[in-house]
Design a protein around this nucleic acid. Structure first.
Length: 314
DNA sequence: GAATGTTTAGGGCGCC
DNA sequence: GGCGCCCTAAACATTC
């Protein structure tokens, strides 16, 4: 199996697993969910390696989507014709990678059916995702926010004040600690292809965020967010409650390793700035055309209606 | 028929 | 060596 080269990855296999790549694609979507075809497109556009042998890796990718509990399938609504479902990240799949790195998972995410706090059902997960979409778009609409990932629609996991950084948030995905195999950090590599994520300073790192008490999208409403989705399971340092379904860091990142964030640099990582319009959810157009409030059943299964709900709120 | 989704199987690799 | 993660292949079912 080819390994990352020293100078360029443009045509070599990325150091990321299919799970990571899929997570990147999903997390790059404004609504944090994508159909399979869009996931394919995301990977192929950013990683030239995957423009070949598509049958092979796409089969593997589909296998991962089905096999891994960290991915949940969200059905299309009847009025959203198309093949396949939307795929999203399980709301409880946090902290799955070692130190936030996507190079290797520390623990396989597994939903325990006996765990009443883990939203294991797709409907529950969809509810959570809807809530997250609301929070994200709330951040997008916040005029006082400085330019940041939200302004680019690049995976802000929560509005200002919540501080919640999903481990799959693009800030974490962009390999804040990834270094070239030769030991050189990304900035020292002059020929870094645009196909690979570059380090930036967006990533405060979710371990310290979790541990700082910032994880409360509902403004301190308690242990549960909207729709009864538990928040504590994602916050391993908040309540001392341990849930087997939620991986916890083996080696929590020391605070010193997470410097304070400077102002966001103007250019975003090339991996994301190249996001084509096609990455926008296919349902985004339909959301604006729907005037009636989304019913609960609609909001459970439709990213479009999730968006619509946000628009209605704002 | 093609795309999508599920399941099973086997092997490589790293970690403990 | 055992275990877990990852990759690949294949077969099959479902949906459009």
């Amino acid at each position: 199996m080819p390994r990352p080269g020293r100078n360029t990855y443009s045509d070599q296999k990325p150091p990321y697993s299919y799970i990571s790549l899929t997570a990147m694609a999903i997390q790059s979507a404004p609504e944090k969910m994508l159909p399979l075809s869009e996931i394919y497109k995301f990977i192929m556009e950013r990683f030239p390696y995957y423009r070949e042998n598509t049958q092979r890796w796409q089969n593997s990718l589909r296998h991962n989507l089905s096999f891994n509990d960290c991915f949940i399938k969200i059905p299309r609504r009847p009025d959203q014709p198309g093949k396949g479902s939307f795929w999203a990240l399980h709301p409880s799949c946090g902290d799955m990678f070692e130190n936030g790195s996507f190079l290797r998972r520390r623990k396989r995410f597994k939903v325990l059916k006996a765990d009443p706090l883990a939203p294991s059902k797709p409907a529950e997960a969809a509810q959570f995702l809807q809530q997250q979409a609301k929070l994200r778009l709330g951040a997008l609409a916040a005029p006082h926010l400085p330019p940041g990932p939200a302004a680019y629609g690049l995976g802000v996991a929560a509005p200002a004040g919540s501080g919640f950084k999903h481990p799959f948030a693009i800030e974490n995905i962009i390999a804040r600690e990834y270094k070239m195999p030769g030991g050189l950090p990304f900035p020292a590599v002059p020929a870094m292809p645009a196909a690979y994520p570059l380090p930036n300073q967006l990533a405060p790192g979710w371990p310290h965020v979790y541990g700082s008490g910032m994880l409360d999208p509902m403004g301190g409403a308690g242990d549960y967010g909207a729709y009864g989705v538990p928040l504590k399971p994602l916050c391993h340092a908040a309540g001392g409650q341990t849930l087997p379904a939620i991986p916890v860091p083996i080696k929590p990142a020391p605070a010193a390793a997470v410097p304070a964030l400077p102002a966001l640099p103007a250019p975003l990582p090339a991996i994301l700035s190249n996001s084509p319009p096609s990455l926008s959810p296919p349902s985004s157009q339909t959301a604006a055309s729907q005037s009636s409030p989304a019913t609960p059943s609609e909001t459970l299964t439709s990213p479009a209606s999730a968006l619509h709900a946000v628009v209605a709120v704002h």
